[in-house]
Amino acid sequence: MYGPAAPASPRTGSGAGVIFVRVLLAALPLVSLGILAWGTTLRIAIMRQRLLEWLLFGLHVPLSFGCFATVGELPEESAWSDAALGVLLLTAIGSMAWFLVVDIRYQRERTAKHVMYDANPYARPQPYPPTPRISPELDDLSDLLRRKDDKR
């Protein structure tokens, strides 16, 4: 009766907010033709807080802006302009794919940690069992106090 409670049911699926942010950030590199592809790498760097992600973000920003500046400055017939545009599109596709893979893995790891926590009933404090009445004198005292309040 006062034993450990049944474990809570594991959370299934992702919330609508997580999916909305994932779709928005996955579409950002393609919609902007690679110009804003650094936004996905920034999200991963903030989310995971690892040195590798921060280094990739630090390399991705100047690469994106450099390629964008090259496409804007050189004439359309230039091979360098075509190469810079190709690099922009490849980084857009690559950062989108990398973002989706890392974000989905990260959310699965977080969900797995919650499931492990919920599966072990001893991992969190249990509510105290109800205490029995200590003595009938306390009941008499509370009745006496109620009567005094009613007289006022």
Rank of each mutant, 00 (worst) to 15 (best):
V101M: 10
P62I: 12
G34A: 07
M116L: 09
R48F: 01
F20T: 06
L63T: 15
I19S: 06
K113F: 10
G86E: 01
E73N: 10
D139F: 01
D103N: 05
L24S: 10
D150M: 12
S64N: 12
A37C: 12
L52Q: 05
E76W: 08
V61I: 10
A27C: 14
A123M: 10
L55V: 13
G72T: 14
G58I: 07
S95Q: 06
E76S: 06
L138G: 04
L138I: 07
L25F: 04
A119Q: 14
M116A: 14
P125V: 11
F65P: 05
K151C: 09
V21Y: 00
L145V: 09
D103K: 01
A6H: 07
L90A: 09
D103T: 02
M47G: 00
R110E: 10
E53A: 04
V21Q: 00
A123E: 08
F99P: 05
D143L: 08
Y2K: 14
L28V: 12
S78D: 05
P4V: 11
F65Q: 12
W98A: 03
K113I: 07
I104T: 13
I35N: 03
E137F: 00
P75Q: 01
A26D: 11
C67F: 14
T91K: 05
G86I: 03
D140T: 08
L88V: 04
G3P: 15
T70L: 15
A6K: 13
E77W: 07
R105Y: 06
Y128G: 03
P121W: 06
S95A: 06
R133Q: 13
F65E: 13
L100F: 02
R48N: 02
R152L: 12
A112D: 14
A26E: 08
L52I: 07
A92P: 11
P125M: 11
Y122M: 06
F68Y: 11
A5V: 14
R48K: 10
S64G: 12
C67H: 09
L88E: 07
A8I: 10
E53P: 01
I46K: 05
E77M: 03
D140K: 06
F20I: 06
A97L: 02
L89I: 05
L55K: 03
G3H: 15
V31E: 03
R147V: 03
L30Q: 06
Y122D: 01
A16N: 07
L24T: 08
T131D: 13
G94M: 10
G13Q: 14
S81K: 04
V23C: 03
R108P: 04
V61Y: 05
P121K: 05
V31M: 05
G34T: 02
D118L: 14
L141Q: 01
P132D: 15
P132W: 12
S14T: 02
T12H: 12
M1T: 15
A45S: 01
G13F: 11
W98G: 02
L56Y: 00
R146E: 15
R152T: 11
L90R: 03
L56F: 01
V23H: 04
G66R: 11
